[in-house]
Every structure is written in structure tokens, then in C-alpha cells.
Design a protein around this nucleic acid. Structure first.
Length: 791
DNA sequence: TACAGTCGGGG
DNA sequence: GTGTACGACTGTA
């Protein structure tokens, strides 16, 4: 076409604008940042009794916004057929919200579809151009976009990298703890330190930096909750405009903080500041930032179709929901309007929901060797794809369809369902990523990128199951959820039978994994025939989590004869540890206790074989004794004794003076407030106060700590890992406190099969000869020892 | 002893 | 722009 400019580049932002209809930002290959615009009419639908639809028609005819009305038929997923609808096409996307709300308010009983879909998803469905996709664009000199064509798909493994300009800003301290004094600003190879006062030069300097560098990404720490609101306030006060936005025609978008309930706990989401034409990401407010970083966020944007600033801050559940919506739009299936109803919704759907849904065994308590952990890979999503489980494919009345085990239901496998259609490429790409990761050395940057993506995918897949079961989810249906768990149980039972046929003892089953043992089986090759057999009978992807040198399943702390499903630890053949449910896995355990526990475990992990464990005991006990002595002598830094707990309610709502409530009250008295969902930090101290909130101006000296309390926590943590070796908490306490040792009693050991009872305890040297722990003189145990336990 | 409050899991 | 479970466990009274 004559007079059109053509360019290739990445789609980085997109939003409705009352004057320009739809604004599309392209980061061009040649470095230009293009603000383009185009008309983008949007249609939503209403269904219901014909008379009501006619009334809605008349009502909307007098609506002030330019719109077009038509009758038609559209496919309803749950009805399984096309239904008559009134199509309301709004000329300008910015009008959609107001028009829809006027309609829904006046006619609340009609059913609405496609009414609340994120603009970027609609755009992806209509044009094929998704968030961050590499596109070819053709536009008029005025900026009017005439053509856009995506040159790739979200499923590429090596999409061209964006040449992003990043400006990073970080205050010197956490603003919720103390008032910051200066900002560190990084862009390219330059780093600047800017004083927050006086304010005018600060604003002028920042303005200069923003203009000069024109960043695509403003990467901050506490930018949502403090920095940007503060800068906006200063900019207003001093009447010095600050070009935070790249689009000068728009203001920044602020979203208020909120507290909500999700998966059984209160979540606090700080306020947010979104920019137009460039992104703002606050690492402190970014979901799972530590898990997958910028690369993970970009990949999530690509595959979910959500804007970068949104995926950075939302849960993966929103991502999976968006992917389903995109599938529906592409298939021409109506997307039900999602009412923000807080009705009785006894959804009772956890994202894992092991107790009613998943098969859980009671593990065989104690220490075992010749054990392998075997897991199904993304079991529930794999089941959905393999068995075609989707809200529209499952039901009681499906003649000729496949019968679901245990349930009086059938699943129609003649056409791929919406959910399997959405998940299939995701599962396939994740498996391909894992292959590539395995083939690359650890230092390879591409490997790190893939690992970040794989981590982001993992979370999408984990949450998709919960969505399937939630009855108020757009594409959720309880029967589909039940079908998945039914197939899951059957699958696990098939795996168990296969293991028993091959002479393995099944130690434990947990939803999508199992632990098996057979005397003498200590190599990967010993378990390969079982893996092959399980893959053959279940037709689902199975993987060896690892072969253990030894593994211990812990009993209940209330009753040592009772097993619990989720507390265990073990060492793989390569010496790496796997721990679940023990103190160091918990975020409310003081750091020094976590470190001691992990250090003890690492010492035990040095044993090549369970038989060599007794020789490791003196070292582990020495570590414990040293820790207890350091605690009493005040040699543990108080910062390492801080307990962190998440607040579930406001101060007034606490009915019991729990440690967290006491700390909250102290903070309140000092003028610092915390909201439910935020974490409170405190120390256990002696005296009536019992605790001392950590974020108060003063810090108590080590002598003020409640040593007795910390000693109890320490001994508990130690006994949780030494209990399988026959050392109970009371014994440890006597021993650590330096009293008589009754470690020499034969029969104390509770090692399974073949380990010589009576070995070990008698070999312990007397306490004064114990080897000193592996510590430096100044610091405490290395921080790595804690992280090593978490994967 | 009963009750109140917090945490993890999955990958 | 989410999704209000469950059991184990600890601390308080």
C-alpha cells in the first residue's frame, strides 16, 4: 500500500484510549519506540428470554456510546451448542466497560458473555499478535496502524530477544522499616546515587535520566508501595512534571492495595503503579520474582497473552485462566462473564486437595535404604490432556463415551476439550525445555533462561487443576475435577501394582508419587524396568525423582506410632538432600535453627550408606551442643533468632495473646501498622512481654532473648531429624544440657532391615571429646546450608 | 484439656 | 483480575 511505513518489532504494550481507540506500542528492531493506534471495535453478548433481549436492545439504542446491535447465534460451551444472543459491538474499546455496566445493572438476570476480557487477549485472538510477539507492522505516517502480523508463536523455544532499555531504581532501605535517604539508579553501565533531599534536584535529576535513557522498563524495589507514589507526590508538590509514563497523553494507573483470601490463607497485595508505553515492575511486589525473574515474567506474558505489568504481579492462576479464555476466543466459544460474587461458594477446592481427591498412604515410619522416589510428571495436567478432561467433555449422560473409573460418569473423547487444548502445548513445551536444560552446562545463560521458563510453567500447571474444580471459575466444573482425581487414583494404584509385581515394597504413596524399596536396589538401573512398566500400563509420563542412600519417614509428634504423610527427609545417591515438612522448610522457623538443622542433616548426608550413619552422629550432636552453648553465651546474632509469621487478621480480631498478636500490638503502639496478609517479625524475649517486635527502633541485646524458648525450638528441630536414629527429644535435652548420657543403651536404634541394632551408640565418644563443628569463628553457619534444603 | 492460630504441599 | 481446605502442630489459658 502506498504511503505506508513497514517495520518489524515487538508488541510491548496495548491499551484503550478514548481519543485514539486502541494504542499499540511497538519496540522496533531498529530501536524506534512506536506509538501506533487503530480502531478496535469490541463485541459482548447477552443471552436469555427473547422478550428481555428485545428490551435490552431498545435500552441500548439510546445509549450515548456509539455501538451496533445485532442478533445472532454463538457457541456456549456448557450447553454444547449455539444459543441465540444479542451481540453488542462497541466502536471504541474504552466504552466497553461503561456500556456493559449500564446493561448489566438494568438487566441483571440476563447471561452475559465476553464482557470482561482483558484487551490484550482479545487483540491476540483477533490479530494473532500476542504480548511480546515479534511482529511486522504497516502504518500511516500519522501513526494509524493498518496491518499487524505476528511472525512467531508463543511456543517457540528461541524467540528473538528484546533489546530492552532498563532503568533500575532502589532506595537504600526498606521504606516500611525506616525512611530512605537516597536512591541508587542504574542504567546501562552507569550508576548514580541520588539524595532524596533536597527534593527539587532529585526530581530534576530523575527527569533528566528518564528523558535521556527513555527506558522500556522501570525496574524498582518497593516502587509500587512507596517509590512511585512518593515521586508522584513530590512532583505534584513542586510542580515539576516527572515523565514516568512514556505516553504523555495518559496518566499512570494506580491500583489500590487489597487483602483477599486464597487457598486457605490471607494474602496481602500492595498497591500498584502501572505505566503506559513502558513497564514498571516492582521486584518486591512481583509474584514469584525469586522463582523465575524477568525471563519468567516475559515468557508468561508471551504464553498467557497478558500484559507484562499484569503477569508480573498476578498469580499463575490468572495466567492459566487467560490461556483458557484465549483458546475459547480462538474457537469461537462464548466466555462467560465472571461475576465478582461472594456467594456461599463452598468451592472447597484446594489446588491440591489431597484429602478427598488424591490417593494418600500412610508411609512406613522409620529409616529405609534401597529406596527410590518415583513421580508422575505434572500428573493432573497430563491426565486432563491424555483423557480429554474438560468441563464440556465430562458428564453422566454421554452415550458411547468412555466410562470414568469409580464414578458414574463418562468422558467424551471424540473432540479435544477446551482445557486439554489449552494445556497440551504447555506440557509439550515444558518437556522440551527439560530436555534442553539437561543437555546444557550449568553456566550456560540459555540454560538459566530455560530454567526460569520451566519454573513459570510449573506454577501454571500446578494451579490449573484447582481451576478445573472451582465451580465459579469460568471454565470450571466439579465433575471434571472429580474425573481427574479418579484417574489419578487409578493411575497411582496401577503404578503400585507394577511395583509389587516386580518385588518392590511400596513405602508410601502420595497423590502423584511413590516411594518403593527392594533390598539391594541402589542404582538407577535397578528401578528402570519399573519405570518402563509404569509408563507402559499408565501411558502417562513418569520420572525417577531419585534413588536414595537412605530416607526417613517421620512419625506424628503426638503419637510416635502414627505415621504422617508429609514429613520426611532423605539423601539421594549424589549426596543431595530432600526434605519435606521439617522445621527448616517452614518460614516461621528462626534462621539459626534452620541452619543448625540443615547443617546436621548435611553431616548425616555425608554417610555413603545408612550403615555409616552412626559414625556421623557424633559430629551432628557436636553441632547441636555447640549451637546450644552459643545460644546461652549470647553468641547467636539476634537477627538470626527472628521469628516471622504471617498475620491472618487485624489486632482487634485476635482472641488470644499469641506471639504474633503481641508483636503486632507493640508495632501499633509505635505507630507502625501491618495489615492481614503481611508478615510480622519478632524475637522471643524474657519477661512479661514475651516477644519483642523486630521492626521497632530498638533491638534487644542477646542477653534479653528467651534462651529457654529457643533451646526448646532447637532441640525440637534436632530431634525431628535424629528421632529415626533412635534419639528422642528428652534424651537430647539431657545430653545437650550436659547431664548423664544414656546413649549407650542397645536397642535404642530403630534402623530398618539389616542395620545392626546396637551399633553406634556405644561408639559415641564422651561429650568433651566430640569434634568441633565445622564453623568459622565469627559468623554462624553458612547461609547456603539453609538454602540447600529448599529447591 | 480445649481452643486459637500458623504452616505446608505440589514442582 | 481471584478462587474462602485440610491436617499437623504449637502456644495460650
Amino acid at each position: 500500500m502506498a504511503g505506508l511505513e513497514e517495520r518489524a518489532g515487538w508488541l510491548i504494550d496495548l491499551y484503550a484510549d478514548p481519543r485514539d481507540d486502541l494504542v499499540v506500542w511497538i519496540l522496533a528492531e531498529d530501536g524506534a519506540r512506536l506509538r501506533l493506534h487503530q480502531p478496535f471495535p469490541i463485541t459482548f453478548y447477552a443471552a436469555g428470554p427473547a422478550a428481555d433481549l428485545r428490551e435490552l436492545w431498545r435500552f441500548l439504542q439510546s445509549d450515548p456510546a456509539p455501538l451496533h446491535l445485532a442478533r445472532g447465534e454463538r457457541h456456549d460451551l456448557f450447553a454444547g451448542r449455539a444459543i441465540p444472543v444479542l451481540a453488542v459491538r462497541v466502536a471504541c474499546p474504552a466504552d466497553l466497560g461503561p456500556v456493559f455496566h449500564r446493561a448489566a445493572e438494568r438487566f441483571p438476570d440476563l447471561t452475559y458473555y465476553d464482557a470482561d476480557i482483558t484487551l490484550s487477549l482479545r487483540y491476540a485472538a483477533v490479530t494473532g499478535a500476542f504480548s511480546l510477539s515479534f511482529c511486522r507492522v504497516a502504518y500511516e505516517p500519522s501513526g494509524r496502524l493498518r496491518e499487524i502480523e505476528s511472525l512467531g508463536t508463543p511456543w517457540e523455544l528461541d524467540p528473538p530477544a528484546l533489546p530492552l532499555r532498563i532503568l533500575a531504581v532502589e532506595p537504600d532501605v526498606n521504606p516500611s522499616h525506616a525512611p530512605p535517604q537516597r536512591l541508587t539508579v542504574c542504567c546501562g553501565n552507569h550508576t548514580y546515587s541520588l539524595d532524596l533531599r533536597p527534593e527539587r534536584p532529585l526530581l530534576l535529576n530523575l527527569r533528566g535520566l528518564l528523558r535521556e535513557h527513555d527506558p522500556d522498563l522501570l525496574l524498582t524495589t518497593w516502587g509500587d508501595t512507596w517509590l512511585l507514589p512518593e515521586l508522584m507526590r513530590l512532583s505534584c508538590e513542586h510542580r515539576l512534571p516527572l515523565p514516568l509514563n512514556r505516553d504523555p497523553c495518559r496518566g499512570v494507573i494506580r491500583k489500590e492495595e487489597k487483602v483477599y483470601f486464597s487457598y486457605g490463607q490471607v494474602i496481602h497485595r500492595g498497591q500498584q503503579v502501572h505505566l503506559a508505553g513502558r513497564w514498571h515492575i516492582d521486584r518486591a511486589n512481583a509474584m514469584l520474582w525469586g522463582d523465575y525473574g524477568l525471563e519468567g515474567i516475559f515468557e508468561l506474558a508471551r504464553i498467557t497473552g497478558l500484559p507484562v505489568q499484569t503477569v508480573a504481579r498476578t498469580s499463575p492462576g490468572t495466567g492459566i485462566s487467560s490461556m483458557q479464555i484465549l483458546t475459547a476466543l480462538r474457537q469461537g466459544v462464548l466466555v462467560p462473564w465472571h461475576k465478582q460474587q461472594t456467594e456461599d461458594s463452598r468451592s472447597a477446592m484446594d489446588l491440591f486437595y489431597a484429602d478427598q481427591g488424591g490417593l494418600v498412604y500412610q508411609p512406613l515410619i522409620g529409616l529405609h535404604r534401597d529406596v527410590a522416589g518415583i513421580d508422575f510428571v505434572s500428573m493432573y495436567p497430563s491426565i486432563m490432556v491424555h483423557y480429554n478432561i474438560s468441563p464440556e467433555t465430562v458428564g453422566a449422560d454421554r452415550p458411547g463415551a468412555e466410562e470414568i473409573p469409580e464414578l458414574h460418569m463418562r468422558v467424551d473423547r471424540s473432540h479435544p476439550g477446551l482445557v486439554p487444548l489449552t494445556l497440551k502445548p504447555l506440557l509439550e513445551k515444558r518437556i522440551e525445555l527439560k530436555h534442553r536444560i539437561a543437555g546444557l552446562p550449568a553456566w550456560n545463560p540459555q540454560r538459566k533462561r530455560y530454567a526460569a521458563w520451566a519454573s513459570a510453567y510449573k506454577w501454571l500447571l500446578v494451579t490449573c487443576f484447582g481451576y478445573l474444580g472451582y465451580k465459579n471459575a469460568r471454565f470450571g466444573r466439579i465433575e471434571a475435577h472429580q474425573a481427574v482425581t479418579a484417574y489419578g487414583r487409578e493411575t497411582l494404584l496401577l503404578a503400585k501394582e507394577a511395583a509389587e509385581e516386580q518385588g518392590f515394597t511400596v513405602l508410601h504413596l502420595y497423590v502423584d508419587g511413590m516411594w518403593v524399596k527392594r533390598p539391594g536396589a541402589s542404582q538407577v538401573a535397578d528401578f528402570q524396568p519399573l519405570l518402563d512398566r509404569i509408563a507402559e500400563v499408565t501411558r502417562l509420563p513418569i520420572a525417577l525423582d531419585g534413588v536414595y542412600r537412605w530416607v526417613a519417614f517421620l512419625p506424628s509428634r503426638r503419637d510416635a506410632r502414627m505415621p504422617v504423610a508429609n514429613r520426611y527427609f532423605g539423601v539421594f545417591q549424589d549426596g543431595s538432600l530432600k526434605t519435606r515438612g521439617i522445621d527448616s522448610r517452614r518460614l516461621d522457623t528462626p534462621p539459626f535453627i534452620s541452619r543448625v538443622q540443615m547443617a546436621m542433616l548435611e553431616l548425616l548426608a555425608g554417610a555413603e550408606d545408612a550403615g555409616a550413619l552412626p559414625a556421623k552422629l557424633p559430629g551432628a550432636l557436636g553441632l547441636l551442643r555447640r549451637a546450644a552453648a552459643d545460644l546461652r553465651a549470647g553468641r547467636i546474632p539476634v537477627a538470626d533468632c527472628v521469628v516471622t509469621q504471617k498475620l491472618s487478621r487485624t489486632l482487634e480480631e485476635f482472641r488470644s495473646a499469641s506471639p504474633a498478636a503481641r508483636a503486632l500490638a507493640q508495632l501499633g503502639a509505635a505507630g507502625k501498622s501491618l495489615r492481614p496478609g503481611q508478615r510480622v517479625r519478632f524475637l522471643y524475649i524474657r519477661g512479661d512481654q514475651r516477644v519483642h517486635a523486630w521492626d521497632l527502633p530498638d533491638t534487644p541485646p542477646p542477653e534479653a532473648l528467651d534462651h529457654e524458648r529457643y533451646l526448646t525450638l532447637l532441640l525440637r528441630a534436632a530431634s525431628n531429624i535424629l528421632q529415626p536414629l533412635g534419639l528422642e527429644e528428652a534424651v537430647l535435652r539431657d545430653w545437650v544440657l550436659g547431664g548423664a548420657v544414656y546413649l549407650g543403651l542397645p536397642g535404642c536404634w530403630r534402623l530398618e532391615d539389616g542395620l545392626d541394632p546396637g551399633v553406634g551408640l556405644g561408639l559415641l565418644p564422651p561429650p568433651q571429646n566430640l569434634p568441633l563443628p565445622i564453623l568459622g569463628d565469627t559468623g554462624w553457619l553458612p547461609e547456603e546450608s539453609v538454602r540447600a534444603g529448599r529447591d
